[in-house]
């Protein structure tokens, strides 16, 4: 735990010292804010919900995760600092968990900045707070899974662009499985739908916490973090 704390704190500080996190956060806020506001305007301010924001947020988080995580391991490989880290008395799994935790901290901070959307609704209207809480929970789960995919993508290359592209590829693939599921026959459709990053999210928006959804997002997270650890271990065999 101590090692994870030390590395995660260092990663979080690196994010704060570089422009990347600020740029993606700014873009995320600008886009999600636009969706939030235009939806409210479109319903003539009768539906005081986060629907506009939430419709876009899940997908935006995928982009955000791919860009935010690309440097985590790939940059260390390029700088040669990975040798420094891998020869320190730290377990590979601690490195992966710490890097993941650092990026989750940035995601949490970014989502916290969007809390002024529901705040506006509370001040000027009477929103249903239950679904808002579950929606944020869902966004954190999607975000966590996406960041785990990003950490894995960053662990397989020393090129940050490649890492972002791989992460984007996997994430969009998993996201659009839901769309594919609608055209697939019966059983296959259900399987694809279950595997889709997108299809579990609407429940959270409607205020439902489905155990299956939680298990799904946590499984994806665990799977890709595990793959990242394996990828580092494999690297040691040269």
């Amino acid at each position: 735990m101590r090692n994870i704390g030390i590395i995660a704190a260092k990663e979080f500080r690196s994010y704060l010292n570089a422009p990347m996190a600020y740029v993606v956060t700014a873009i995320f806020l600008a886009l999600s804010g636009t969706f939030f506001a235009t939806y409210l305007a479109a319903t003539n301010y009768s539906d005081t919900s986060l629907t506009g924001f939430l419709n876009a947020a899940g997908f935006l988080i995928l982009l955000f995760a791919a860009v935010l995580t690309m440097r985590l391991i790939a940059e260390e490989k390029k700088l040669g600092t990975f040798e420094f880290l891998l020869t320190a008395p730290v377990r590979d799994v601690e490195i992966v968990l710490a890097k993941f935790a650092g990026s989750v901290a940035v995601l949490t901070a970014m989502l916290a900045l969007t809390l002024y959307y529901p705040l506006l609704l509370i001040v000027f209207g009477d929103p249903d707070l239950g679904p808002i809480a579950t929606s944020y929970f869902g966004l954190l789960l999607i975000g966590g899974a996406s960041l785990a995919v990003g950490v894995f993508a960053s662990s397989i290359t020393s090129n940050q662009i490649v890492a972002a592209a791989v992460a984007g590829g996997i994430l969009f693939g998993l996201w659009f499985l839901g769309t594919a599921a609608r055209f697939a026959p019966g059983g296959l459709g259900e399987v694809l739908s279950y595997l889709s990053l997108a299809d579990h999210f609407p429940d959270f928006v409607h205020g439902i916490i489905d155990t299956r959804a939680i298990v799904y997002y946590l499984s994806v997270t665990a799977l890709f973090l595990f793959l990242a650890v394996r990828s580092i271990e494999t690297g040691r065999w040269g």
Binding site: S14, N17, A18, L79, G80, T81, F82, E83, F84
Partner: peptide, 9 residues
């Protein structure tokens, strides 16, 4: 290591 492993930031 051969090249000093430094975090440039």
């Amino acid at each position: 290591p051969e090249t000093a492993p430094l975090y440039t930031d």
